[in-house]
């Protein structure tokens, strides 16, 4: 689409998502270190710096970094306890890892010129599918074949049950789809819209309409603040839905 607009177009909103090898160039191979790899690594390093290095003092009165790490810990722990319910603490490290990774990827993606791994459906689909498989396995391990009654609505009148069962099954298998697309599409759309306004700003300046550039600039400032909110909310939504699915597997409604 950028090519179709011709050489002079300023608007390439999708170019920021292009995955390219950092070394050597050419095709992206399985083991290629790409910009996506780099920013995943930066996320992992940042989380490690916060939660491992930041808490190494084990201070009774926490330092600033330590209290941020404790805040994050408390936030996720409370969410797991309240939403996933009894017996869910075993999976707390998993949900914490998910939440921290998505939150840091989203937030680091707000740095101009950086890359957002979570704006890629390959990443969010892998995460969502991993949650789906984990939760389904937990359901069967905990309840055996009894877990299948999760899809059989006992309260409904007899003739409705098969119909509702089909709907339940569909909605269950749609979970990873909505789970992954919600996060990926939000990140994609937000970054793309920011880029569109940035391009518009450049176009207005290049077109000699100087003062008019205030409009896209103001829109960018507002949207940037909004995107920070979305970056947090989407990480939170992903984690809390994981907790909801885990609760279903552990307690079956």
């Amino acid at each position: 689409m950028a090519a179709a607009n011709g050489e002079e177009s300023f608007i390439h909103p999708m170019d920021q998502f292009v995955i390219k090898p950092l070394f050597g160039g050419g095709e992206v191979q399985l083991l290629s270190i790409t910009n996506s790899t780099l920013w995943m690594a930066i996320s992992v390093l940042a989380i490690t710096a916060l939660t491992v290095w930041g808490t190494s003092g084990r201070a009774l009165v926490p330092t600033r970094v330590q209290s941020v790490a404790e805040l994050l810990y408390g936030f996720v722990r409370q969410m797991v306890e309240e939403v996933a319910g009894e017996g869910s603490m075993k999976y707390f490290p998993y949900i914490f890892t998910l939440f921290a990774f998505i939150l840091f990827s989203n937030m680091l993606g707000m740095i101009p010129g950086s890359f957002t791994p979570t704006a890629h459906i390959a990443v969010t689909a892998t995460l969502a599918l991993a949650v789906f498989i984990t939760v389904t396995v937990i359901g069967f391990l905990r309840h055996g074949t009894h877990f299948l009654t999760f899809f059989w609505p006992k309260e409904a009148p007899g003739w409705l049950r098969p119909v509702l069962c089909v709907i339940e099954l569909i909605s269950y298998f749609v979970r990873p789809v909505s789970h992954s697309i919600r996060l990926g599409a939000n990140m994609l759309a937000g970054h793309a819209v920011l880029k569109v306004f940035a391009g518009l700003f450049a176009m207005v300046i290049a077109g000699g309409l100087g003062p008019m550039a205030v409009v896209p600039l103001a829109a960018m400032v507002g949207l940037t603040a909004f995107e920070f909110l979305v970056a947090f909310i989407q990480a939170y939504v992903f984690a809390i839905l994981t907790c909801v699915y885990l609760h279903d597997a552990l307690h079956m409604h």
Binding site: T34, T37, V44, T51, V52, F92, V123
Partner: peptide, 25 residues
């Protein structure tokens, strides 16, 4: 490539969180 490196990142992060960071906090 994305899925491979995501898996590596998640495994490394899970290990660091579950073995070091979370028990310590």
């Amino acid at each position: 490539s994305q899925i491979f490196w995501l898996a590596v990142a998640m495994v490394v992060l899970y290990y660091l969180m579950s073995r070091i960071a979370l028990p310590r906090i």
